[in-house]
Design a protein around this nucleic acid. Structure first.
Lengths: 168, 168
DNA sequence: CAGAATACGTCAGCCTTGTTGACATTCCAA
DNA sequence: TTGGAATGTCAACAAGGCTGACGTATTCTG
């Protein structure tokens, strides 16, 4: 635990046994289940799935985003996204607006109802995240974020950074 | 960053804005994609999916485990697991042995071929994990693990701990 | 301006992986 | 010994990925 604070700069001299790495892998697997568990319960009641949650989350995060942008964030095909988007628009949770400057584009926004569901979902998910952060301590949180960022693919890290800036 | 090392014990006085928590959530989402990307590529070539990977991983980890035990680790229905297991047995990657003391149980083992695939998959996944750990430093790794453990459901943490001990 | 490229939507069909329901076998306890 | 619980298998269905093909509107470019 004190290893990383040494003059080596916390890098370079890590002894990483296969066993340690395997535990990291399993931790990731089990934790992700917890991570999605609470929203999944809420979604199931409303006959939505994780795909709907993801769309709602990122539309909330980047109001007015285009379909194409959402596509590259979510990393699915347009057919797949479209199915989800259609139900959200039909159910009045998402509004799709023809672009003013480029009329080929559709800009996506949450309606009031959509924003309400978003709040319900992210409240649940944040509660767990907050509890985990509290239990682990702020030093651990910094490390958590560092490792996760290092684990992303390049494209995803780019998206992640972009979202980061926008939120400020 | 130095906050958690204070006499407060790294807890209690965390300022956790919704914005910070949201970034944690997004980091988790993007990182998990990276986490599964490499094995997914290998699996796609061989016409297997993530479900096969999970089964192989945990059978490797606990040779001789029963279907029921695997079920509770994976958190799916037995019918769902069974389908995956059947293809693995048919393809000669997994051996299923009728229990000696309780003949209702089946004990699961990897065959040589199964172990070979397991190695290929976990090598790929470990490589990424190792790179992320190296990039983040050992202090970060400790924090990473701490937060993940705190994020798990109780049952999952129990499984996680059990696997931990067994590996030693 | 004509034609290529882009953005989006949609239809059809497939696969994986989750679900429930029905059922056979085996074990155990009343 | 018999009925209930536990274990595992088979069948059928749904969600949500995927590819491929196509239509339409719009924009960009030579």
């Amino acid at each position: 635990m004190a290893e990383g604070t040494s003059p080596h700069g916390g890098q370079g001299l890590l002894f990483l046994t296969d066993e340690q790495l395997r535990k990291g892998i399993e931790a990731m697997f089990f934790a992700y289940r917890g991570f999605t568990a609470d929203p999944d319960r809420i979604l199931a009641e409303k006959d939505y799935g994780r795909a709907h949650h993801r769309a709602i989350h990122f539309i909330h995060r980047s109001p007015g985003t285009t379909v194409n942008n959402l596509l590259s964030i979510l990393g699915v095909t347009k057919q797949s996204l479209n199915r989800v988007l259609r139900t959200l628009v039909d159910d009045g949770l998402v509004r799709s607006e023809v672009g003013r400057v480029d009329k080929r584009e559709r800009h996506l926004f949450l309606t009031e109802a959509g924003a309400a569901l978003e709040r319900e979902l992210s409240d649940a998910q944040r509660d767990r995240m907050r509890a985990a952060y509290r239990a682990a301590g702020s030093e651990a949180v910094a490390g958590f974020r560092k490792v996760l960022e290092a684990m992303m693919d390049e494209d995803m890290r780019r998206h992640f950074e972009t979202l980061k800036d926008r939120g400020r």
